[in-house]
Amino acid sequence: MIVAKFLSWIETAPVARRAEATSALARAYLYSPLEPNEKQAAETALTILLDDPAPIVREALAHALANSPYAPRQVILSLIQDIDDVAAPVVAASPVLLDSELVDMVADRRTIIQMAVASRPSISPALCAAMAEVAESEACCVMLDNPGAQIAIFSLRRIAERFGAVPSVRNALLAVEGLPIDIRQMLIVQLGAALQQLELVQSFVSSERRSSLFKDACDKATVDLAFDCDQGDEMIALVEHLRLSGQLTADILVRGLCMGNVDLFVAAMTSLTNLSETRIRACVSDPSEGVVTALCKKAGISERVAPAILSSLEAYNRLSDNHGVALPRSRFARLMVDQILGDYNGIAEDEMDDLLALLRRFATQIARDEAREMSAMLKQVTAA
């Protein structure tokens, strides 16, 4: 009887009063000890309220039912098909909804609904995978910031592939604890590509020069990244990513050696030659022209690069014997590249001009890095 009077009343009641009454009825349905017939009547009334022409009434219904596992399923399914303001609170919270229903919503609905899915208290790996595949960048960013999202590594990788150039997504990915190193390297490349497309850069730097700067910057960042990873599985993962993406070049290897990162060289040559790590490290410890040339040939590296690699390994062993690990990285790298360049005094520039140019660029970059480090140290001393 009470529900019948309610249905009669809402036909003429003001919108604001209808919204208040709708919320009260929904709470009564969920939390009051109603008789079975009263419960059924209340459910019927809630279903009828789905047709109320005022969105504020339907919003009140959505907010009242959104968090309850006991909300009528047919009402919930109708609410999520309503306008975004009505659907969003239900999509964001309702435990009644199945993953399959949420996946369909991610694929078919606008960004605001995708963001509602991404903000749910708990998101399964399967739903995260669907989000990573089809959701917009804003929704993926919300999901990355959600501690209840169970995002698998392959989903993180897919997000990086799709939106690594978007600053907000890139920052959210980098904030993920334990982000795999191959994804971090992918983000470095995408950041460089995004910087190349800036109108200011294109206005003042030629296309060829942009490409050269981009490659140098990415190679340098990759070598720096390799210094920060562990020398086990993480280094192997980085090398395999570089190999599969076509980035494991002679430039990277020579740059890594110039910086003193022999572990990167060992992991790379182990991957490229299928020789054991023990054999590669033996070559590093006691390099010779014949062995290094054969190693480069087996790895598919131009034999023209072999002298630079040989010189790098010899310089590394000399410096390691003399200084160990006492020198700062930039100073060690400066001494390395100076010794390597000194070994080419007897080689005509027209024979290895591109390699000499590469080494000279390294020398310039390393000298600037060393100067910056010294400047920072002087500032600290002065401040103290």
Rank of each mutant, 00 (worst) to 15 (best):
A306G: 08
R162S: 02
A41Q: 14
I252M: 02
L335F: 07
A60G: 03
I181Q: 08
V266R: 12
D84W: 05
G148P: 11
L7K: 15
H241V: 06
A24N: 13
P121G: 14
D343V: 05
R368L: 14
A268Y: 00
F163E: 07
A26P: 01
T249H: 09
G246N: 08
V201H: 04
R361K: 14
E314A: 09
A221P: 00
A71Y: 04
I159K: 02
A217N: 05
Y344P: 01
E199H: 15
A172S: 10
A221G: 04
K215G: 10
A326H: 07
G342L: 07
A367S: 10
A19D: 04
D230F: 04
E38S: 06
A87D: 04
E349P: 12
R318K: 12
H63L: 10
A13H: 06
A88Y: 09
R255F: 00
L248H: 03
T222M: 01
R18S: 03
L97G: 06
C229Q: 03
T293M: 06
I252L: 10
S155K: 06
P53M: 11
F214Q: 04
A130N: 07
A194T: 06
I340K: 05
P125R: 08
G290R: 14
R27L: 05
L319P: 00
P33Q: 09
I236C: 07
V96D: 01
R110L: 13
A60R: 01
P14N: 15
S78I: 00
S124M: 02
N261V: 08
A326D: 09
R18M: 02
K220V: 10
D82M: 12
